[in-house]
Design a protein around this nucleic acid. Structure first.
Lengths: 181, 181
DNA sequence: CCAGCCTATATCCGTCCGATATATGCACCG
DNA sequence: CGGTGCATATATCGGACGGATATAGGCTGG
């Protein structure tokens, strides 16, 4: 999904500045499956403005750079709906963690243990924040559905790490012994 | 993970050409969590060659461009191990599918149904290929572990789609009715 | 028989990410 | 009271990367 459509999606939920849009990809409910950087957001907002899909009103701020609040227009909502009707591309997952574990037999047990401990802690942390800040009752069905799917998948991954780590550690130790022979 | 390290990882499992490396990111066991394009693989192999981390022998082929078979060197293996010891960055997930479902209330029921049907079929397809082509007994523990995690997570996502789609459809229909009022 | 796909290498262009620059307010700590 | 670090806020640059394209011949199926 190109950055312009992502911005339209965020703005469809409410007016925001470029900075706030960035934050919504770091902390908001979209954070777990979409990302965009300043280097793509600011040019995207400029182009959306030029095309009339958003409007921008500058909010003068006391001794700070003007905050540029963007709002989606009717044309913007139409463009968003249009983009939503296109068949989505395949999901992309990028996990350096799994790449490292893939070569577990090249790593010492201590490193593997720390790696898995850290990752389980990360999952616990995310799950806690997702269940705390839920506030789901007032959100549309799509958001609730996506939130629930995220919870289910994260729990599943955490459980797998917890339940199979010993098998991995034993197998990796075996491989190291055989390699040393 | 930069493309050079990814290439070292693939070559650590056996000699390969640039084309074969690309294929291993499309079909091989790494496919589900790493990706690289020709536009990054070929320059990466050139640089790895220059740095002595891989060696290349050209295989003359009958009426075809020479196949350049790359092999990892001892220095390359050291560089790979070094990269594996660095703390991995956070996982990245990019799902246009979830982005679309997030705005389910903007889409007609027929579109949502097709979307979810297609995605469940995709999961079934991947799960089938992952269990058929397994051949796991001869693979190192790390590969088995990562494979098992992939299976678990895909099954979990498929089950969630299957078990919660009706709730989503009902909720989205509700939202459309309220918006029309 | 030939259209389309597979093997195989390579490059180009546009887009995107990460780092950096700039500017200021506020909270915390010694 | 001063300074360190973090949050707000916009913007740009360089390098890395992905998708499309070019080239070229072989194999396969309708």
């Amino acid at each position: 999904m190109d950055t312009r459509t992502l911005c339209l999606g965020v703005l469809n939920r409410g007016d925001a500045s470029g900075y706030a849009i960035k934050k919504s990809f770091e902390e908001g409910p979209l954070a777990h499956f979409q990302e965009a950087s300043f280097g793509s957001i600011y040019p995207a907002l400029t182009r959306l403005s030029d095309d009339g899909l958003v409007v921008c009103r500058a909010q003068a701020q006391n001794k700070r750079p003007d905050k540029k609040l963007y709002s989606i227009t009717d044309a913007g909502r139409a463009a968003l709906e249009d983009a939503l009707h296109r068949r989505p591309t395949d999901d992309e997952v990028r996990s350096d963690f799994l790449f490292v574990l893939f070569f577990a037999h090249l790593l010492p047990a201590a490193t593997l243990n720390r790696l898995i401990d850290d990752r389980i802690a990360w999952y616990e942390d995310v799950l806690l924040r997702m269940t705390e800040n839920a506030d789901l009752d007032h959100r549309p069905a799509g958001e609730r559905f996506v939130h629930g799917l995220g919870l289910a998948v994260y729990r599943c991954a955490r459980d797998y790490l917890r339940d199979h780590r010993d098998t991995l550690l034993a197998g990796a130790a075996d491989a190291r012994v055989h390699a040393a022979e």
